[in-house]
Amino acid sequence: MFAGYSVNDLASIFVMQSFAGLILFSVFLLMALGLAIVFGQMGVINMAHGEFMILGAYTTYVCSQIFERWLPGLFGLYFFFAVILAFIVAGGIGMLLEWSLIRFLYKRPLDTLLATWGVSLILQQVLRSTFGAREVGVTLPSWMMGSWNLTDTIQIPINGMIVISLTLLITGGVYALLYRSGWGKQVRAVMQNRSMAGAVGIDTEWVDRTTFGLGCGVAGVAGAAFTMIGSTSPTAGQQYIVDTFLVVAFGGTESLGGTIASAFSISQVRSILEFFFNGSMAQVIVLLTVVGILMIRPQGLFALKVRR
Rank of each mutant, 00 (worst) to 15 (best):
F2G: 08
A3V: 11
V7T: 14
N8A: 10
L10H: 07
V15N: 09
Q17Y: 15
F19K: 02
G21E: 14
F28T: 00
M31A: 11
L33K: 14
I37H: 00
V38G: 08
V38Q: 15
Q41L: 15
M42G: 00
I45W: 04
N46M: 09
G50T: 09
E51C: 05
I54V: 14
Y58P: 12
I66C: 03
E68F: 06
P72V: 09
G73F: 11
G76F: 09
F79C: 04
F80T: 04
F81N: 00
L85S: 04
F87I: 06
V89T: 00
I93R: 03
M95N: 02
L96S: 04
W99L: 12
L101W: 04
I102E: 02
L105I: 07
L110D: 11
L114S: 03
T116M: 06
S120G: 09
L123M: 14
V126I: 15
V126R: 12
F131Q: 03
A133L: 10
R134P: 01
R134M: 03
V138F: 01
V138C: 02
P141Y: 08
S147P: 00
N149K: 10
L150A: 12
T151D: 11
D152E: 12
T153N: 10
T153W: 03
I156F: 07
P157C: 06
I162Q: 02
V163K: 01
S165V: 11
T171Y: 14
T171D: 05
G173Y: 03
L177R: 04
Y179L: 02
K185H: 12
K185F: 14
K185Q: 13
Q192H: 00
R194K: 13
R194Q: 10
D203R: 15
T204W: 05
R209L: 15
R209S: 11
F212Y: 06
G213R: 03
L214G: 00
L214F: 08
A222M: 13
A224N: 00
S233R: 07
Q239D: 15
Y240H: 14
V242E: 05
D243E: 03
F245L: 15
A249W: 05
G252K: 15
T253M: 15
G257E: 08
I260F: 13
I260N: 04
A261S: 15
A263P: 02
S265D: 02
Q268C: 01
R270H: 08
R270P: 01
L273E: 11
E274G: 08
F276V: 14
F276N: 09
N278V: 01
A282C: 10
I285S: 05
I285A: 10
G292K: 01
I296V: 15
I296H: 12
Q299K: 13
G300R: 06
A303T: 07
A303I: 06
R307H: 12
R308I: 05
